[in-house]
Amino acid sequence: MGFKIPFLARSQAEGDGVNGILVEIKSGNTQLKEKFISDYKPFVIKAVFNATGKRVEVENSEEYSIGLLAFNEAIDSFDFSKNKNFFGFSEQVIKRRIIDYSRKNRETQNKVFPFTYFSDEQSNDFEERYLTSDFTNEFSNIEVKEDILIFKDKLRQYGISFRDLLTCAPKHKDSRVMCIRIARVIARDEKLLNKMEKTKTLPIQELLKVINVYRGTLEKNRKFIIALCVIMTSSLEVMNGYISQTEEGGDANV
């Protein structure tokens, strides 16, 4: 559905354009600012819908309120020397603020995305089911989808798939905690991490010099440990929640 330019913006666009309106607003014309925000509420609604994938109910939507505040923020922070497209810029601001809101909601509810959800015996395509189902509504819809796609892409570089994680993840909590602690050693050691990222495999020889663990343990859990390192060294906060919760109360030592 196309977006029609409101009368205010259309009439002034014939002169200075949207940037001219923004210049006047930034010079202190608060009435013009209020009118500009009011006229572009349909744009905000569309941006919120694009960010959440959900129908926006103006009267009862927290996301819509956040969208309006973000649009106001975009007006104030728009830099003509760095950006040419105000509406592209403002949509990104709206999206970021909604993601922030979703993250805070998730933290409040203390929900964690478990690795075990990669198991779905009744579906031939985990990604299709995940990305199109209502299951994502139980989590932070936008953020989880983005995390999953980023995670998938990073794992592919190591030749690891989601289904590999299902088959290689340790069954016992103590073993999972041990793998987490091994992964932390790698994530905190620049040389080990660089070696792993360069060779796209676990630096087993180097690890054996700094941790007290059997070689067979490293080989058996290689893919799982690599996946944990990927999470720890990326901004995958949803899955970092899994790591933190798994680690709590664990008694395995490295």
Results as ranks from 00 to 15, higher is better:
G2M: 08
I5K: 00
I5L: 01
I5H: 00
R10S: 09
S11V: 04
E14I: 07
E14P: 00
V18G: 02
G20D: 04
K26A: 02
N29Y: 02
E34R: 15
K41G: 04
P42R: 00
V44S: 04
K46F: 03
K54S: 12
E57F: 13
E59M: 13
Y64H: 14
S65L: 11
G67T: 13
A70R: 08
E73R: 10
A74Q: 00
I75G: 03
I75P: 11
S77Q: 10
F78D: 10
S81I: 14
N85Q: 09
F87T: 13
V93S: 01
V93R: 02
R96S: 14
I98V: 02
Y101C: 08
S102H: 11
K104E: 15
N105E: 12
Q109W: 08
N110E: 11
F113S: 01
T116A: 11
Y117C: 05
Q122S: 09
S123R: 05
D125Y: 08
R129K: 12
T132P: 04
F135G: 01
T136H: 00
N137T: 12
F139C: 04
D147W: 01
F151D: 07
K152D: 03
K154F: 07
R156L: 06
I160W: 15
L166E: 13
L166T: 13
T167L: 14
P170E: 03
P170N: 08
I182D: 00
L193H: 03
K195T: 15
E197F: 06
K198C: 04
T199C: 02
I204D: 06
Q205N: 10
Q205A: 11
E206V: 05
R215V: 02
N221T: 08
L228P: 00
V230M: 09
I231F: 10
T233H: 03
L236C: 09
L236G: 01
E237T: 07
N240A: 01
Y242H: 08
S244G: 05
A252V: 03
